[in-house]
């Protein structure tokens, strides 16, 4: 049980702006309607800066970078 960093999108507020896929293609791609499909694998330290930038740049603040204990 060690904490993993994962990116979550709150689908109730996401408006398909797509900024996330632009900034963090390592874990985010867009579906045919422009909504993010997030790869749920944990985020290694080298990618953390990109994940954080994506979360901070989402115009709807729909992205959450959280620690999950699994």
């Amino acid at each position: 049980m060690r904490p993993h960093l994962v990116l979550l999108v709150d689908p109730t507020v996401c408006d398909a702006h797509g900024v996330c896929a632009e900034l963090f293609p390592e874990r985010v791609r867009l579906d045919p309607w422009g909504y993010p499909i997030i790869d749920g694998r944990d985020i290694p330290p080298v990618l953390e800066v990109h994940a954080r930038r994506a979360a901070d740049s989402c115009p709807r603040l729909a992205l959450h970078l959280v620690e999950e204990v699994r």
């Binding site: 689908p11 398909a16 309607w33 422009g34």
Partner: peptide, 9 residues
Amino acid sequence: GQCGPCVLG
């Protein structure tokens, strides 16, 4: 009617 993928999908 809240989540895009649910509504559209």
